[in-house]
């Protein structure tokens, strides 16, 4: 099973890199872009075949290592 994890900064946490990206997109002439937020994408191969168990395991991985929940949120997508 593939696990795809997005780690993003929580709302209310300033993202200076996102701001710089937004500013540069504007200077390149891309208009109407706002709220750029930079995050991380992590992909894992899991031996687990049970989706519920896999979700539980990946949630624990996010809580313990992949995300810092002081500043970051995470979302998990599983694909059989």
């Amino acid at each position: 099973m593939k696990a795809r994890i997005h780690v993003t900064l929580k709302n209310g946490v300033l993202d200076p890199q996102g701001k710089a990206i937004e500013h540069t997109l504007g200077s390149l002439g891309f208009e109407g872009v706002s709220q750029a937020r930079q995050g991380k994408f992590i992909e894992l191969d899991l031996e687990e075949t049970d989706k519920a168990k896999a979700h539980e395991a990946v949630t624990a991985m996010c809580e313990k290592l992949l995300a810092n929940t002081v500043i970051e949120n995470y979302s998990i997508d599983l694909e059989q």
């Binding site: 946490v13 300033l14 200076p16 890199q17 710089a20 810092n68 002081v70 500043i71």
Partner: peptide
Amino acid sequence: PGALMRNAGL
């Protein structure tokens, strides 16, 4: 407590 993030000035 807390976290250390990228410097605001990058």
